[in-house]
Design a protein around this nucleic acid. Structure first.
Length: 634
RNA sequence: GCUACUGUGGCUCAGGGGUAGAGCAGCUCACUCGUAAUGAGCAGGCCGUCAGUUCGAAUCUGACCAGUAGCUCCA
């Protein structure tokens, strides 16, 4: 007998019982919806026999792990369908991802979108057949024989064989795949499946290797859940900042400058308002501001290491027979500023901000609205400090980030990016700096994940990722620890002891870039910006022509009060004007007719709260100012 | 950059070998209107660019450019 702890309740079972049977003993409902199990904290199959006392949790589709097992099994069903329909296909990998699953195939004739419905039909058949999945293990040699002709599987087996492991397999009827699991008990558990996309993807994510055909899909235990999911994606599309940017007249992109955005008057108000806010916050945190040239000579970029490590992404030119490069980053210019005068330990930490326009030659396929452009304004800053100030400064910077993100109601996740292959500096230095970053955020009680090998070439970094409307995350803030550039530029300060010392520095951006951040908040607010950011804060809607004079006088008064106000003098019905103002997401609509004109009032309508009734002009100004001051999100 | 797809008036889109169509927006006129679309009229397009096939190309083919999804890369 074994004792099994089921969420705090202990029960006895016969030794060797499977997790599935335990689930059945609890109830048929749970048994039918069970996807996998957690035994002593480790996620595993429902078919796993339990040999000793343990804590057991049955995981359904409602849990993260349950979903993963569900989607992973669906990806095997997809592969089985492709295997039946397109014999000779070579299979690579097919994992569950955050939002569904995919499977990569190598086919003589790659699939096209028209093939998906046929594959979906075959998937439905396999589900209907309700084929049980079975797990077994083989030693590497036998595994290779089993997967004869499957080049990608051979490569995977060789890798695992190197670690001396047996290879685990799952088979479902006529299809067997090399897989670690866990998986559902049978194909019939999958109910609603939709293949969502077909694209190319490199084998092993390596651009030098062969491009395979990747089919994406998602599945749910209920048809209604699938429909809800598709509905959600439609809604997300409406928030796309590229669509809203066009509709609201914020920015545009033209063939004449791929990746180089044009800002239109309304977008410019947003950008400038963000910049004002940024300056205000940084003043509070004792930053000074500088501006360094957009183009500097090759010698400087060689000294900083950019010429060697970043040249392919830089725009270069020749001036008077000397190579120059347009800056892809602001740091080298910042180094020159620091080095231009002697510093005392009393100056440190020295916080130097720069809204710097940088240009990077990004690959054409990587461009994406304002999220990924070729020229952008970084909200950059470099903080120079002594070694023992590092902890404090990193924590102070994270507090600044928290203040800024919470102003917009944004949430983030943190990644710690470690030493890349292409790097400068010693391994010891890197490890020391990585530990400092780790300690600082751990001390603040923040969680983070490690992103192995993704650091900047000069140092490790903490990256702050914010999600867009489709759940894709974009790196906005980053804190990069750098002891290389101070070395290369021979930066110094005079210490308490009268000796010269080398400072350390961080590079950091909060917003990432004004452009990217604008894209993120456009989606976050679905274009309905808080009052303080709205390009147009109120629109005056006179009811008839005889109210035009009053409307114009009102606009002057509101202008004078510092509000951004438009006046709709077209001879249209009020309902029409309101509809237009709603579509443009203008926060306040001020309707004025006979009643308001007589009383010196405005009838206020809010885009979300609706009709708020008539108030005096002064009262409206006061209300609006208070809302702007508080940066309230509504 | 790679794979696949897309490219028609300011916007959204229909059409598709015989030289272009709708709705919205714009302009004009009438209506002077009370909280999400008043009506009528007018104007607006070398159908992404360049080649090729054809008597004839927006339509077929190719190359290029740009965009979209994903991969790679990245703030």
């Amino acid at each position: 007998m074994v004792k099994i702890d089921l969420k705090g309740q202990e029960k006895e079972f016969e030794k060797g019982i499977t997790a599935a049977e335990v689930a059945k003993s609890i109830g048929m409902g749970l048994y039918k919806s069970a996807c996998c199990a957690r035994v002593n904290g480790r996620v595993c199959d429902l078919r796993t026999p339990i040999e000793e006392d343990c804590a057991l949790e049955i995981l359904t589709f409602d849990s993260e792990e349950g979903k993963k097992a569900y989607w992973h099994t669906t990806s095997h069903i997809l592969a089985q369908a492709v295997c039946r329909l397109y014999p000779g296909t070579k299979f690579s990998i097919g994992p569950a991802i955050d939002n569904g699953f995919y499977y990569d195939f190598d086919m003589e004739k790659p699939l096209s979108a028209e093939d998906l419905p046929g594959i979906e039909e075959e998937i439905k058949k396999i589900i209907k057949e309700n084929i049980p999945l079975e797990r077994f293990e083989l030693p590497p040699q036998e595994a290779k024989e089993k997967m004869a002709g499957q080049d990608y599987k051979q490569e995977l087996i060789d890798e695992h064989a190197g670690q001396g492991e047996n290879i685990s397999f799952y088979s479902q009827g006529d299809f067997t795949d090399l897989c670690a699991g866990p998986h559902l008990m049978s194909t019939g558990m999958v109910k609603a499946v939709k293949l969502t996309a077909i694209t190319g993807a490199y084998w092993r994510g390596d651009a030098t290797k062969k491009m395979l055909t990747r089919v994406y899909g998602i599945s749910f235990p209920k048809q209604s859940m699938l429909e809800e999911h598709l509905q959600m994606l439609e809604e997300a599309k409406k928030r796309d900042h590229r669509k809203l940017g066009k509709e609201l007249g914020l920015f545009m992109l033209k063939d004449e400058g791929p990746g180089f955005p044009f800002f239109l008057p309304k977008g410019m108000v947003l950008k400038n308002t963000l910049m004002d806010y940024w300056r205000q916050v940084h003043k509070k945190y004792n930053y000074v501001e500088i501006s360094t040239p957009i183009m500097l000579n090759r010698q400087l970029w060689e000294r900083s290491g950019h010429w060697d490590h970043y040249k392919d992404n830089m725009y270069t030119t020749v001036i008077d027979e000397t190579d120059f490069a347009v800056k892809p980053m602001n740091c080298p210019g910042g180094m020159l500023v620091y080095a231009s005068e002697p510093h005392s330990y009393r100056d440190l930490p020295l916080r130097v901000g720069e809204i710097g326009l940088v240009h990077r030659h990004e690959l054409s396929g990587a461009l994406h609205g304002l999220f990924r452009v070729r020229c952008f304004n970084q909200d950059d800053a470099h903080v120079f400090m002594t070694r023992d100030q590092m902890q404090d400064i990193i924590q102070e910077t994270v507090r600044l980030f928290d203040e800024v993100y919470s102003t917009f109601g944004l949430t983030y996740t943190i990644e710690l990016s470690t030493m890349p292959e292409d790097h400068i500096g010693t391994v010891e230095e890197w490890e020391k700096n990585q530990d400092i970053l780790k300690e600082a955020i751990t001390a603040m009680g923040k969680e983070f994940v490690i992103n192995e090998g993704d650091g900047a070439f000069y140092g490790p970094k903490l990256d702050f990722h914010i999600a867009d409307s489709l759940g894709r995350t974009w790196q906005c803030g980053t804190i990069q620890l750098d002891s290389q550039l101070p070395e290369r530029f021979e930066l110094e300060y005079v210490g308490e002891d009268g000796e010269r010392h080398r400072p350390v520095m961080i590079h950091r951006v909060v917003l990432g870039s004004f452009e990217r951040f604008l894209g993120v908040i456009t989606e976050h607010f679905a274009g309905a910006f808080p009052l303080w950011l709205s390009p147009v804060q109120a629109v005056i809607l006179p009811i008839a022509e005889r109210h035009h004079e009053y409307a114009k006088a009102l606009q002057k008064q509101l202008d004078a009060a510092g509000l951004r106000v438009e006046c709709d003098l077209r001879s249209e019905k009020t309902g029409y004007k309101i509809r237009e103002a709603q579509i443009k997401k203008i926060p306040y609509m001020l309707v004025v007719g006979d009643k308001e004109q007589e009383a010196g009032e405005v009838s206020v309508r809010h885009r979300k709260d609706g009709d708020l009734g008539a108030v005096s002009i002064g009262a409206f100004i006061e209300k609006a100012r208070a809302e702007i001051e508080s940066k309230e999100i509504k």
